[in-house]
């Protein structure tokens, strides 16, 4: 077993007086796919937003690829560049074309020559099957296409870890599949992924481990088959009975 690429130890986080995350311990090894599920308000999104420090934690340690995240972390941009993130609301840059959305960060953050960045972007867009939309603007695309573009944009930074924050929750049912397909093929390519989702079908298909969270705590963490076949805690059983 190799060293875990993400290591979270005794992490606590508060929003004002409200404790959103309570004593989180989590280790993720490289190339593993983790699905995080749980009722809304359970702190799933906050947890993965802490991993690239879009949220700051108050106690405990988060170590990503050997770098500890804290106020003292100087090159937070460097760490973020290695951790791609896909959001529920896509968050494409509406003033830039699809291609420019994908090349912006490689050119300006990674200092990649423009030509190489464009080639890379077209390559990634092809993988999610929207290379024919490269010159359109985000507003002209459907939700599913936008989300696939957002995945391609994150991949253009060639990250080591990909975080997905409910990537299909804002989509029409028909478009969920095309986005999940893109994520499945990404998973098969060996990317380390942490996915917050309610799509249990996706979890069963690709996840190595499933984490169930409630009220800011990790209630259960188990191998996928084990998780669905015989969940240990009652809370998990209740959740699964409602969602499946």
């Amino acid at each position: 077993m190799s060293d875990p690429i993400i290591k979270i130890q005794n992490m606590n986080k508060w929003f004002g007086d409200f404790q959103v995350l309570k004593n989180i311990n989590l280790e993720v090894e490289a190339n593993k796919k983790i699905v995080v599920c749980g009722p809304s308000g359970s702190g799933k999104s906050t947890l993965i937003r802490c991993i690239n420090r879009l949220e700051e934690h108050q106690e405990g340690d988060i170590i990503v690829d050997g770098n500890e995240l804290s106020e003292k972390t100087k090159d937070i941009e460097k760490i973020r560049a290695e951790v791609g993130m896909v959001f529920q609301q896509f968050n494409l840059f509406p003033h830039l074309s699809i291609l420019d959305n994908c090349t912006l960060a490689p050119i300006w953050v990674k200092k990649m020559p423009k030509k190489d960045a464009q080639e890379l972007a077209l390559d990634q867009l092809k993988k999610v099957q929207i290379d024919d939309q490269a010159n359109k603007f985000p507003g002209q695309l459907s939700g599913g296409q936008q989300q696939r573009c957002a995945i391609a944009r994150a991949l253009c930074m060639q990250p080591k870890i990909m975080l997905f924050d409910e990537p299909t929750s804002a989509l029409d049912p028909e478009m969920i599949k095309e986005v999940l397909d893109a994520m499945v093929s990404l998973a098969k390519g060996g990317m380390t992924m942490i996915v917050v989702t309610h799509e249990m079908g996706f979890a069963k298909e690709v996840a190595d481990e499933v984490i169930f969270m409630d009220e800011g705590m990790i209630i259960e963490k188990a191998e996928t088959k084990e998780f669905f076949a015989n969940p240990k805690s009652d809370r998990t059983k209740l959740f699964l009975s409602q969602i499946l």
């Binding site: 879009l54 941009e77 973020r80 993130m85 959001f87 896509f90 968050n91 300006w108 944009r153």
Partner: peptide
């Protein structure tokens, strides 16, 4: 501007000025 724009830019590794 929605907060998501800031989040997205930060998650791509852009610093304050970029």
């Amino acid at each position: 501007l929605p907060r998501g724009q800031y989040d997205a830019a930060k998650s791509l590794g852009m610093g304050y000025w970029k």
